[in-house]
Nucleic acid binder design. Sequence first.
DNA 1: TATAGCATGTAATTAGTTACATGATTAA
DNA 2: TTAATCATGTAACTAATTACATGCTATA
Lengths: 188, 188
Amino acid sequence: MKLRPISFLILGMVRHGVSSGYAIKQAADVATRNVWPVSLAQVYPELSRLEQGGLVTRRDDPRGARERSAYEITETGEAALLTWLNSTVEVPMQVRSEGFLRLFFADILPIEEQLSLVRRLQERYRSMKDHLYDNAPQSELESLADAGIRYPLILIRMGERYYDSMRDNLAELEAELEAEEDAVEPPH
Amino acid sequence: MKLRPISFLILGMVRHGVSSGYAIKQAADVATRNVWPVSLAQVYPELSRLEQGGLVTRRDDPRGARERSAYEITETGEAALLTWLNSTVEVPMQVRSEGFLRLFFADILPIEEQLSLVRRLQERYRSMKDHLYDNAPQSELESLADAGIRYPLILIRMGERYYDSMRDNLAELEAELEAEEDAVEPPH
DNA sequence: TATAGCATGTAATTAGTTACATGATTAA
DNA sequence: TTAATCATGTAACTAATTACATGCTATA
């Protein structure tokens, strides 16, 4: 049975006690979306696959008349997760940023438009940083950390720094472009 | 006609004078792979689409008996490219990093294995930084910049800083984990 | 009482990669 | 002379998203 990153994401979530497909999607949206986004339409079939492979077990866990499945990790599943955590193979890291693709072609634009593009990109990073804690407030992450699960907080903090450093880079570029603009057409 | 990031990537490359499908793929691999990766099997059909849409024109441009197509951007294509460069809509930025996904679940591991995971991640960033200039040497990028096309160099430099800052973050985490390990089992 | 959220799933579509097929040219 | 690179394209497959369908429960 072939296991991919999405398999381990789900396995890891289940191992952390997140038991339903819906809840896994929710948790992934607040916690892992910045390193590995997933959609609901991936979660349900993959959970079945993992169950068939004997890596998780399923039981009915309805809430009133509303059906719900609760998954638990098996020993095989746990072993697979640990092996993955300690392995070095990984699919090449991928970044897709339409904003930076634009920047790559910014030479085509006049200087004022280059500037406004750089400012827009900065704004984007500012807003991404501002929304990092939206669904997982710091307090919640800190109590998780106190309970021994601290990497979610560590990752969010790295994210903050990453956004800050990108913004610094862009701010520097902005300053250079402003200086250039002034050299051509001095401020009034 | 629906234009996506890949369309603008190709349009931009053609506008920069990269005229064949093969050459576009080569250029994208050295220059834009870190912000928007593409494969050859996307380039050829998309070029045809752009030609059908009147955004580029095609002419035969063989090298000896070896066939080759040379594409040029049309005025419509140029206008579309400029509109895109100045527009604010963009597909949400995406990052997929199996390494960081592992880190998210590192709480499961004993401290020594957490440490080796963090070290492996650092190593990965070091090597990514080291390979940034592999196919586009700094000298080449600098002469491009002297010729007025400077964003390729700007982007590579931002990439360097990005890798450095990620490595700093990870080094700090490594130091914290080492301190913790020593507290539990002091060095001999 | 109606809207948002919980809950599960499938179908259809889009996007992207890998593999295949073919053949010319250049450099070792 | 042979391997690497140039060059174009398609077929098959894998991955991922969006849309659709259904129904319960809590809350405003």
